[in-house]
Amino acid sequence: MKFMQEIIGHYAQILREETDMFLKNMQREALTAGTFTQEVYELLKDYVSRGKFLRGSLLLFAQECYAPKYDVQAVQAAIALELIHAALLIQDDIMDRSVLRRGCLALHKSFESRGEVEQFQEVKKTGESLALCAADALIFVALRLIKHGELMDLFSKELHRTALGQMADIMGSASRKTFSKDKILKIYQYKTARYTFSLPLAAGVILAGRNPAQLEKIGEEMGLLYNLRDDYLDFTSTSGKDQGSDFKENKQTMYRLLLCEKTSEEPKDFEHYKELLEKHGVFKEVDQLMLTYHENILKQIAQLDILKKEELALLATNLLTRKK
């Protein structure tokens, strides 16, 4: 927890303030489009501010692994990454039919609530359509902030992978079959791991004028550990997002795969699913897989010649033990 509170927390607070200022500027620019856009931006500012700012913080942190202090270009790129991340979450919640996000209503549900009050026609469709447009707006304004040519190429490459990973995730939820371990890990890698860790770490190193290969590789394994822990938190979370959403949406996870390998018994509901996982030792098996990733990450970090080696190791440990 030390890393999150003392290091990431510091970067996150700076980015939260800078992002709010940027969105206020965009809000003023949007005045010409009418008063409703002002209400949309109020929702977006609140929605974005509730995030952890993990990705943007990692970008600033990565630059400081090789340079004394992050610069303005890094702050702009970090804000862009956070805005794009928020946009992807808005889209993801519509696809997954999620009700909650970041401790509040998902954005499309906020628009639906307004539609019910104002008696919109086709409230659900309108709420989802407005949320998708709001997500587009976040992506489009974010593009203004990526001013480094190599960084634009990196963002494009990694976010393309994210889109492909999301498509594979959707196909997995629709499939009656359980995917192989390699295929599930590839979804983790593309949908979450690379854009959550490899992208910001590589971007920060590039802005420091160094080769990003080592941190990019470590970032990918950190992202896989993050995703595995995220799957575990789906069983325990009491706030922020819907508990049991992976089970309800038929997600391809390591928990699902390992259970299928051990029994043909079909879970009747989410509680029964948890009972089966416990009974067949799946929780312990995934815990061991996370420990293996953690140990491998620490070995790679030990070989790095960077300014923030200890902090990076603390982050890896935090990923293993985080509660949200």
Rank of each mutant, 00 (worst) to 15 (best):
S198T: 11
K183Y: 12
V117L: 15
S156I: 10
A174N: 12
I139S: 07
K109H: 11
L143S: 10
F111Y: 03
G115A: 08
I184W: 01
E122H: 10
F140R: 14
L154I: 07
I139Y: 12
G149M: 09
S110V: 14
M167Y: 13
Y190P: 06
Q121F: 13
M171Y: 11
I187A: 00
L154C: 10
M167A: 14
E150V: 12
Q119D: 13
G149D: 14
A168R: 08
L151N: 04
R161Y: 11
I146Q: 03
F197N: 00
M171K: 08
S180F: 08
S113L: 13
K157I: 10
M152W: 13
G165V: 07
R161F: 11
K147F: 05
V141E: 04
L201S: 05
L199E: 06
I139L: 10
L199I: 06
A106Y: 07
Q119R: 13
T192A: 07
V117K: 14
G172Y: 00
F179K: 12
L130M: 07
S110G: 13
L130I: 06
S110H: 12
L145Q: 04
G127R: 01
K181S: 12
K186P: 01
L154G: 00
K124L: 04
I170D: 02
E150C: 11
A142I: 03
T192C: 03
K124Y: 03
V117R: 13
Y188N: 03
I170K: 02
Y190W: 13
S113R: 14
G127N: 00
L130G: 01
D182I: 08
A202W: 00
T178Q: 06
A203H: 08
D136S: 15
E112V: 02
Y190V: 08
F140Y: 14
S110A: 15
V141Q: 05
G165K: 03
F120T: 03
V141T: 08
A135L: 06
D182R: 12
P200M: 06
Q189T: 14
I187V: 12
